[in-house]
Amino acid sequence: MKPLVEYALRLGDDGLVLGQQLSEWCGHSPMLEIDLALANIGLDLIGQSSHFLKLAGDTEGEGRDADVLAFHRDVLDFRNALLVEQPNGDFAQTIARQFLFSNWQELLMRELMRSHDATLSAIAGKAVKEVVYHARFANEWMVRLGDGTEESRNRIIAGLEWMWRFVDELFAVDATVEELIVRGVAVDPRLLRAEWDARIAQALAEATLEAPKPRRAASGGRSGHHSEHLGHLLTEMQFLPRAYPGVAW
């Protein structure tokens, strides 16, 4: 597979999977405002994803468009990070996941605007304006939950504890990315780590929380080794176009 196809799939699958998860909160959130916010964030992510998947399909040149890539690939073909396929859990777990992801995605998109690939740069230029608000939303809720009641505090600590093991994968580099970094196409995520650490530390301090203790990191999503959660998510997300091929409104 061409490196750019692989890279665009990774970016697209992150947004698609997380957007699908967030959409599950629609109608179930603790308050109307959160309902609207999570639905909007999910919508942004799915929109960004459709642009990345279109780029993947166009670059591949085998006639697969964004919908085909979203709805007609199986678990092993998905390239999202393990973090985004972690279940919504309770609201705190959802916020912990968003907090870690959005702060990373904002830094990533800001750098990706400088990509030598014009399409990646254009998508990132739109995305970064959206992701700024996702990160702010998540950061504010970290503070409310961490510095809230005993109950909210315990829940956000538990959420962070679970999600923390999936962070390192966001900053990992393999041969595919290495090649694209050299060509000025991909962002070197290792260079984002220090700023990400500082942002996270600042938000956690404001939330009167401590970073979880380092633990053995889990990875594999970028090469298609996923947790069982992704399969369940895909059965729901892909049901309609698979059961009724070619269906249209």
């Binding site: 405002e33 609207l36 916010a37 702010r136 939303f137």
Partner: peptide, 13 residues
Amino acid sequence: EISRFGSTPCKSL
């Protein structure tokens, strides 16, 4: 501002 996210992506409450 009540919420940065409103009835459509482009609006706040």
